[in-house]
Simulated assay, not measured.
Amino acid sequence: MRKRTLPVRPLRIAAATAAALSLTAVAACGGTGGGSSSADSVTVYSADGLGDWFTTQFKAFEDETGISVDYVEGGSGEVVSRADKEKSNPQMDVLVTLPPFIQQADEKGLIGDTRPAGIDALPAEAKADDGHYVTLADNYFTMIRGTRVSPEPTSWDDLLAPRFAQRIQYSTPGQAGDGTALMLLVQHLYGEQGGLDYLTRLQANNVGPSASTGKLGPKVGTGELSVANSDVQMALAAIKNDKAAYETFIPTGPHGERVTLSLPYAMAEAADAPHGANAQKLIDFLMSVDVQKTLADDAFGVSARTDVHATGSNADAITAAVDGAQIWQPDWNDVNERFDALVEAYGKATGQ
């Protein structure tokens, strides 16, 4: 399997070695090429968060099919932006990203018909109306706080306290899926203008922009930051696998309510996939019952398939992370239509 992070540089790793390496630790070799030209390969562009699970599953896929996976990882918006820039010379076969960036990719014509085997086991909300993407893994927004932070912040208003000056960071709305989710959730809680006012006040404590949510967790774990945004899947996986010294929390809103939002990893076949047949095989593999059953145990993900029901300690941890919170389902198509205006208003309000 070959792994890349943006900016992309070619890298080939022996399958036996790849499974033991984390994506963020892989060093790149020279060159700037895109996807593989090999007939026995498939190129995946993905938002960060599922890297360790992908490493295991891509190796299993290669063992089963002989098809190697060329993996490119970046922020939710970064991977879509890269695919768009390559539109005249497509490199991507499969896209995995968060809303509203999957809707953006669809609007830009980057993705096409995506019908995995067993698609009838997916509920309507896990399939795009136009058939261009499906939910690979369900997930939810969360905040994280260092285990040594005392007293613990529990509300959105707590994060405005002077003691958190330059101790908070969140991924940038418009670039990262989790950061966009934070902006939308705050506006949902405080009202559209009230949310912008809140984020303007939060700037006194915010370290600054970050295109990737995955880069923030380690900073909270080491104590460089006190609080950051994340998502349940990414955070719980890091807490268990990396012994990250932080915990998840869903802050209470202005009226004492705890609200999170659904933030699924969506998967699609590229509209002009250079290796379309291989892309279909990989999508079928990742959406199969056997592989979907591994989501909770191996990645703290939630399968959208109605015939997969997770049990065990990881499934319990996912439930506990959102226990007592309302799960808000944004209208992602509406968000996508208003995306530029929302991000522009955010930028003007925060200067970021």
Rank of each mutant, 00 (worst) to 15 (best):
residue 37 S to N: 13
residue 195 G to K: 01
residue 245 A to Q: 13
residue 286 L to V: 08
residue 184 L to P: 06
residue 295 L to W: 14
residue 3 K to S: 12
residue 1 M to N: 06
residue 220 V to T: 10
residue 321 A to E: 03
residue 74 G to M: 02
residue 94 V to P: 00
residue 344 E to F: 10
residue 152 E to M: 06
residue 213 T to D: 14
residue 37 S to M: 11
residue 54 F to V: 00
residue 341 A to T: 12
residue 157 D to E: 13
residue 288 S to A: 10
residue 325 A to V: 06
residue 166 Q to M: 15
residue 233 Q to L: 15
residue 347 G to K: 14
residue 140 Y to A: 03
residue 40 D to L: 13
residue 193 Q to W: 10
residue 185 L to N: 01
residue 147 T to F: 02
residue 65 T to E: 13
residue 148 R to D: 10
residue 52 D to I: 03
residue 175 Q to E: 15
residue 32 T to F: 15
residue 15 A to T: 12
residue 235 A to L: 11
residue 271 A to K: 13
residue 125 E to H: 11
residue 195 G to H: 01
residue 248 T to F: 06
residue 308 V to S: 09
residue 268 A to C: 04
residue 196 L to D: 08
residue 88 S to V: 13
residue 182 L to M: 14
residue 229 N to L: 02
residue 137 A to E: 10
residue 337 E to T: 12
residue 46 S to V: 02
residue 351 G to S: 09
residue 314 N to Q: 11
residue 326 Q to W: 09
residue 265 Y to C: 06
residue 181 A to K: 00
residue 124 A to L: 12
residue 304 A to E: 07
residue 115 R to T: 15
residue 218 P to R: 03
residue 116 P to N: 02
residue 212 S to R: 14
residue 319 T to R: 15
residue 214 G to W: 08
residue 316 D to T: 00
residue 215 K to V: 14
residue 75 G to D: 03
residue 343 V to K: 07
residue 313 S to Q: 05
residue 330 P to Y: 08
residue 88 S to Q: 14
residue 105 A to P: 04
residue 122 L to W: 03
residue 175 Q to P: 05
residue 269 E to N: 03
residue 340 D to Y: 02
residue 70 D to H: 02
residue 61 F to K: 01
residue 219 K to N: 11
residue 30 G to H: 11
residue 108 K to S: 10
residue 24 T to E: 15
residue 93 D to H: 04
residue 239 I to R: 08
residue 102 I to Y: 11
residue 219 K to S: 12
residue 88 S to A: 15
residue 318 I to T: 09
residue 297 D to K: 05
residue 163 R to P: 07
residue 348 K to W: 11
residue 15 A to H: 09
residue 19 A to H: 05
residue 297 D to Q: 09
residue 318 I to E: 04
residue 91 Q to F: 11
residue 309 H to I: 09
residue 75 G to L: 07
residue 161 A to H: 02
residue 188 H to E: 12
residue 36 S to N: 10
residue 174 G to R: 03
residue 317 A to R: 07
residue 239 I to M: 15
residue 76 S to L: 05
